[in-house]
């Protein structure tokens, strides 16, 4: 079957690929683009290990066709750190031992970032429900929830400092985002 030519943006970079019409975005990312951070845990949208954002919206990459990425912007776990600095969520996951085997971690980080982007100060319950689409079999979620709380607190402190120190810092943050 003839391939589909797709022009898209992945983690801020322009990317072009050719994929089969029935090929899911997860397979494209992993097998054609070489980004293996998103994992296949189920292939049916039940585990969230392949979580990515598509134009800022959290999706399971196993339920999106590669062809649907055309003209849109994708963020994967590989796009969370900016330059040499980890995203506060990434730092807090390490600091709070919020991962054991780590295979679900990319999905959790992408989903948690999507939560904090729309709700910078979530309650424990809001965190638990926002992450209910991501399965973790190792941790019992305890340390994951705590890491997300800690990251939210740090981002709030960063934002307050950025507000105080004026415009230049804001510009830097926007570029990083």
């Amino acid at each position: 079957m003839a391939g589909v030519h797709v022009s898209t943006t992945i983690n801020g970079d322009p990317v072009e690929f050719v994929c089969q019409p029935a090929e899911v975005l997860l397979d494209v990312l992993r097998n054609r683009v070489g980004l293996t951070g998103a994992k296949e845990g189920c292939g049916t949208g039940d585990c969230g290990a392949c979580s990515v954002t598509l134009d800022g919206r959290l999706v399971c990459a196993c339920l999106v066709l590669g062809a649907e990425a055309d003209g849109r912007a994708i963020t994967t776990v590989e796009g969370l750190a900016s330059g040499g600095r980890l995203h506060p969520l990434q730092e807090k996951f390490i600091e709070h031992a919020a991962l054991q085997c780590g295979v679900c971690t990319p999905g959790f980080l992408v989903a948690a970032k999507a939560l904090l982007d729309r709700n910078p100060d979530p309650t424990v319950e809001q965190i638990r429900y926002a992450l209910a689409g991501n399965l973790c079999r190792c941790t019992g979620y305890d340390k994951i929830v705590r890491a997300v709380q800690a990251a939210a607190a740090e981002l709030a402190t960063d934002a307050a400092q950025a507000g105080k120190s004026g415009k230049s810092k804001k510009t830097r943050k926007q570029t990083a985002a």
């Binding site: 980004l35 776990v77 996951f93 600091e95 991962l99 780590g102």
Partner: peptide
């Protein structure tokens, strides 16, 4: 901090 932490949070 675990030695494999950065690898596991960056994909």
């Amino acid at each position: 901090p675990r030695p494999d932490g950065v690898d596991k949070v960056t994909g």
